[in-house]
């Protein structure tokens, strides 16, 4: 189903987090919501799920206004940043939780949970408790738990942030293929450009309480919008960049790395910390951009 936010505003103790936000995500789309930390991404998902009540605006799922529905009535699958598995339930029972609530027959529960256990390659761990799982396994269980109830919309809040690079790539591939297979409308929150480019059918950027740009990933990287702030880009590797404009404090560069398929214009802060490597190449460290 499609999901739409209409004129959502939210502030905490007088501090505005979301400002008249409008966002429409189509049926079956894999949508990435990109933005700096503290930019209101989690708040946006919480509003969609009904966990946070917006000050103004409404939420539509399909053609239905769900603004006044409590979270348990919204048919949403939510994968939390910290997995949020039930610590007192086994892997099997974690995944079965939503099905038991729906009074699904025992046999059917076993069938559906087993399918996902196999799908996410975790069958051997099904009687373990979450504290005995690795980060990647917890992540996959959280995904299975959200998907097994066949939600109308799947929300994922920086689900890969605690995974190492190797695991991340595997889980990303898996996620992409599961999403394509189930066709569930997905909103995926991240602050990682690489991830956004790999996963998203479309990407929107949330900054300063507004959706600044909403485009296909291709367009986003081709034409970064005017004051498109990228202070949240995490640079983990040495990037192959070519400076466009530099002064003693700032540099605007184009990234031509393999991981990113398209050049990105970023503004480098604290130019003196940026080491010149080769002609046209800058070595960037995490947090410098």
């Amino acid at each position: 189903m499609s999901i739409e936010l209409k004129g959502i505003s939210k502030s905490y103790n007088g501090r505005t987090v979301l400002k008249n936000l409008n966002l429409k995500i189509n049926q079956g789309e894999f949508h990435v919501l990109l933005g700096p930390s503290g930019g209101g991404k989690t708040t946006t998902l919480s509003v969609m799920a009904g966990l946070v009540k917006p000050d103004r605006g409404s939420v539509f799922i399909g053609n239905k206004d769900v603004s006044n529905l409590s979270p348990d009535k919204r048919r949403i699958g939510y994968v939390f940043q910290d997995h949020a598995l039930f610590p007192h339930l086994t892997v099997f029972e974690n995944i079965a939780y939503g099905l038991r609530l729906r009074k699904v027959k025992k046999q059917e529960i076993k069938h559906r949970v087993d399918y996902y256990l196999e799908r996410i390659n975790i069958t051997n761990e099904k009687n373990k408790f979450p504290r005995h799982l690795s980060g990647g396994q917890k992540q996959r269980v959280a995904l299975a738990r959200a998907l097994v109830i066949k939600p109308d919309v799947l929300l994922m809040d920086e689900p890969m942030s605690s995974l190492d690079v190797m695991t991340k790539e595997i889980v990303q591939e898996e996620l992409k293929s599961i999403q394509q297979k189930t066709g569930v409308t997905t909103i995926y929150v991240t602050h990682d450009h690489n991830e956004a480019g790999f996963l998203g059918d479309r990407i929107s950027v949330l900054d300063n309480g507004k959706v600044n740009q909403i485009d296909s990933s291709f367009e986003l990287f081709q034409n970064p919008g005017t004051e498109f702030r990228t202070s949240f880009v995490e640079v983990k590797n040495i990037l192959d960049v070519s400076p466009v404009k530099t002064n003693s404090y700032e540099a605007t560069v184009l990234i031509n790395n393999d991981g990113l398929k398209y050049p990105v214009k970023i503004r480098v802060k604290k130019y003196p910390d940026v080491e010149r490597e080769k002609e046209g190449n800058l070595k960037l460290k995490r947090g410098q951009v």
Binding site: S46, A49, L51, S70, P71, D72, K73, R74, I76, G77, Y78, F80, Q81, D82, A84, L85, F86, P87, H88, Y97, G98, L101, R102, R145, A146, I149
Partner: peptide
């Protein structure tokens, strides 16, 4: 208790009372 564990129960379809009981 982790707030998100409670939220997880709610989004999976449990009422507040059911969440109180089972989580």
């Amino acid at each position: 208790i982790n707030k998100n564990v409670i939220n997880a129960s709610l989004t999976l379809g449990a009422s507040k009372f059911h969440t109180f009981k089972t989580v």
